[in-house]
Design a protein around this nucleic acid. Structure first.
Length: 105
DNA sequence: CTATTGACGACAT
DNA sequence: CATGTCGCCAATA
């Protein structure tokens, strides 16, 4: 029997592509990705797409944070997201990225 | 088709 | 600085 391929919509595909281009040790924001894919007002929808990300961990959705510097959510648990980011060299204090403005792409 | 949901953002309190 | 409200958009029921 054949595997059922989760058909990804164009919107989700664009989100995954943009997210995959984030270099290790840096981050991006939901809003930033939204603009990159041509829907600057769809930050929320971007988060939804990443939440269902079928290409994890190929697509580093943990490198996407909120525009105010807070970590945002994570399907594997927010604490886990913070842990992974710290491992990549990202400083986080009280749930906020310290040098956020300097590492955001 | 409409209603609900959600890993958001900006602003008000 | 913490919390709440409104607006936004796409996926799903």
């Amino acid at each position: 029997m054949k595997n059922k391929e989760h058909k990804t919509s164009q919107f989700q595909d664009l989100v995954y592509m943009a997210t995959a281009s984030i270099p290790r040790g840096k981050v991006s924001t939901y809003s930033n990705i939204a603009q990159k894919i041509g829907s600057p007002r769809s930050a929320r929808a971007v988060g939804n797409a990443l939440n269902r990300n079928p290409f994890a961990p190929k697509v580093p959705c943990h490198r996407v944070v909120r525009s105010d510097g807070s970590v945002g959510g994570f399907a594997g648990g927010k604490g886990n997201k913070i842990k992974i980011l710290k491992k990549e060299g990202v400083e986080i204090t009280a749930g906020k990225l310290v040098e956020f403005r300097k590492i955001v792409v």
